[in-house]
Design a protein around this nucleic acid. Sequence first.
RNA 1: GGUCCCAUCGUCUAAAGGUUAGGACACCACCCUUUCACGGUGGGAAUAUGGGUUCGAAUCCCGUUGGGAUCACCA
Length: 477
Amino acid sequence: MTIRTRFAPSPTGYMHIGNLRTALYEYLIAKGNSDGKFILRIEDTDQKRYVEGATDIIYATLKRVGMNWDEGPDIGGKYGPYVQSERKEIYAEYAHKLVELGGAHYCFCSKEEADEEKDEEQNIKFEDPCKNIPLEEAKKRIEAGEPYVIRQTINKQGKSKYHDEVYGDIEIDYDELDEGVLLKSDGFPTYNFANVVDDHLMEISHVVRGNEYISSTPKYNLIYESFGWTPPHYVHVPPVMKDAQHKLSKRNGDASFQDLIAKGYLPEAIINYIALLGWNPGTDEEIFSLEELKERFSVERLNRSPAIFDIVKLTWMNGQYIRKLSEEEFYEMALPYIKKVITRDVDNKLLSKVLQLRVETLADIPSQIGFLEQVEDYSNDLYINKKMKTDGEISKQALGYAAAALEQTEEWNNDNLFAVLKHVAEEKGLKNGQIMYPVRIALSGKETTPGGATELAVILGKDESLKRLKNALLKLG
RNA sequence: GGUCCCAUCGUCUAAAGGUUAGGACACCACCCUUUCACGGUGGGAAUAUGGGUUCGAAUCCCGUUGGGAUCACCA
């Protein structure tokens, strides 16, 4: 059997993390199997919720993380069209067929009438009177132009049963199922119907979706049954939570994929992290590329309980990915962030190298390097450091020695600068820190900096470094 | 409310009847060190609860509690 999975988002806005994780699992199920196919289908049957540009975000996101689809709206495929609004006639045809087959019936009730009758608290369901209208009569009313919907007919008694690849055997009483609308009065299908028809027609072998569908799956199975179709394998996955009570949702402004990218997270790190939110390889390893995920993934190791999205751990993982980058790769990514705050001519290569060890997201960069552009006013108390054994007086002396020595230094690189200053320290009977520390403060005006004294000097260049040393000397009076 | 699902450190999770309940993030300490970081070493930290079953339960069964989902002409 060839495995075919589908990612079927509705274009209602941004790609959120839970959605992306579902897509990932669908992709991995298909691609862990060499000839599996990953299909993209757009579920836009609710015209009220359609958001312009949403499909482009879906395309861009999947491409960015490397989850390429084998069939979809943009590239076609032999099961198309892949946009549900373009399949309206197909659903209508099958819906009417389902009525003939006894799996559904025409209903002339308004939404208000149906709502009035039911009561969730008291567990009273809507008992559709239209079920009893003879088919011939219903057809006449439709021909006469009366608005109608097609509603699922559920007459079965007892328990429905199906197997879920994650949750095991699920049993739900047929009485619990309600006879939902399959084809709306505007002629569009509801999800409940469209997903069944499409999954069958597109020969989807594994349906992966949120576990909120667990209890409605028996209804879908009834439709498969009426048509004489074989239901797919079901893989229901637990939700990704924002905290113990709430799902991650775009409504609350929770992180979406594009938000994370904007905050300086790498796509590879995001994918790696969300893969582990509900799945694990069974070993202690946790850094995986998409390729490695393909090899390792298995539905058996999917979890049944919800997972809280922890930005702190993602941030750590992102740092791991940043450090794994080559110096050149990181330089390319860091440069735009560096340029945001630095207009001065500095050694960007060295700056980037020094930052690569220190940032966890690209967005950390600007706040760390502002002092390179301009030294903000700082207190001379900064020169007092117990551990380094410095105070204002020692710093003043040290800065004097350092400035004089550096003035004479031509070979302006880290190794040489360090050698020069170390030599000065020895000569003057100072500890290394007693010269390095004041120099670093003088160059930055900051207590902590990315890089040590000599690295900052190289990044700033000789002229600017000497200028800052002299200013500091003046400031120390 | 009916039904369904879930329950191991703060968080993500491992342990498919026998482990000193393991790892990772975070936190703390120490080491490395021209600050900070990176890296290294170590530490505290969990089986929700009550009953069974069993020689033995985090693991199987039942109850309780807690949480979530669902009961749309949304998906």
